[in-house]
Design a protein around this nucleic acid. Structure first.
Lengths: 195, 195
DNA sequence: GTCTATAAACCGATAGAC
DNA sequence: GTCTATCGGTTTATAGAC
């Protein structure tokens, strides 16, 4: 174990986690069957139950991986160059696979995940990290005179996070990226950015 | 058949539709099994396959019922008293079972529904109706000087619809209504309402 | 119209060989 | 560690009596 960023042919365990993560993203908890995971991962059944105690254990590992990736992306955007407002705009305009949606947000719609404290935790944590970074950027933007000082940062942050998550729902309903893009542009208008 | 609003003890068909609707709302397409529908509806298996060709047919009927109810609620809000902005605020502040979420929006997260043109249609239509009413109200609010004339109504409408749908996701992640309420208040702040 | 009985496929998990 | 075989339960229907 080096613990470093050495990229190799993934072992069975990593392939299982990644396969589960992809299935969970696209088809949710109930749609992610052990059989489907094995087919996608190219791993045998015995191997899966050797590394994980069962489906919930495997799902938790996959969730933690998605949470880790999303939090890294959030940190990259909000510790990057630019003013507070520029970081907010950068977050809203991130390149996204709109019709696939958010790998973490998807989990918040799964009753089996939401009902279980342990399975819900990675989702809760990730939205917490997002909200904190957005709120801090709003505060910075206000200090710089880029945003109205009367805005409450935590509220604005929640509204902006919701626009992104809700935009995915609107887009899926029409099977088109346009509703998502309209919602993002609408949020930018309300922030006073695009005019 | 009177076609009127005569309320009676529901027949088997209506009970099946309502049972399916509730299950779909809480547990999604895969979580809504014929067996569960029968238990909740108090109807036998033969009866179900007499009235409906199968699960997709029953799900479609349930979707249309949810769409009908949500569209009626939308029309009630946007044809009510008040200025354009007041109607928008009324929509945002509607009483909602936040942790249960939106009975129609829920469907947009279901791959089995989104992938099927017929099953997706009631969702598409309902968000279309919502967007039109919101956009019209924005236009009216601009004409009355209540909202900035530079806002693009369809964009603002999409952003507001997304705040509501996304707010449900944030709330479920924390199993608390607070993130939802923060997002709504944030949207009101951005509209210049609450200060 | 509504019922019970049956069925083929799939689900999540276990057993035990190698 | 990974494999194959097997298990009891559930899913989405179909058949046929009443």
């Amino acid at each position: 174990m080096y613990g470093g960023a050495v990229e190799k042919t993934p072992n069975a365990k990593d392939r299982l986690v990644e396969g589960t993560r992809q299935l969970l993203w696209d088809r949710g908890y109930l749609g992610t069957s052990p059989t489907a995971i094995l087919r996608r991962s190219g791993v045998g059944q015995g191997s899966m139950y050797h590394h994980f105690s069962g489906k919930p254990d495997l799902v938790l590992a996959a969730e933690r991986r998605s949470a880790e990736l999303m939090q890294a992306q959030i940190r990259a955007v909000f510790t990057g160059e630019g003013t507070g407002l520029e970081r907010i705009v950068a977050y809203l305009l991130l390149e996204r696979d709109v019709l696939r949606g958010c790998s973490v947000g998807r989990l918040a719609g799964d009753p089996e995940i939401v009902a279980d404290e342990t399975l819900r935790e990675p989702v809760r944590e990730t939205f917490g990290v997002l909200g904190e970074h957005l709120a801090r950027a709003v505060t910075e933007a206000q200090a710089a005179g880029e945003l109205d000082a009367s805005l409450r940062p935590e509220r604005t942050a929640a509204a902006l996070a919701a626009v992104v998550q809700g935009g995915y729902a609107l887009a899926r309903a029409e099977q088109s990226v346009e509703p998502f893009e309209r919602a993002i542009l609408g949020a930018l208008d309300l922030l006073g950015v695009s005019p």
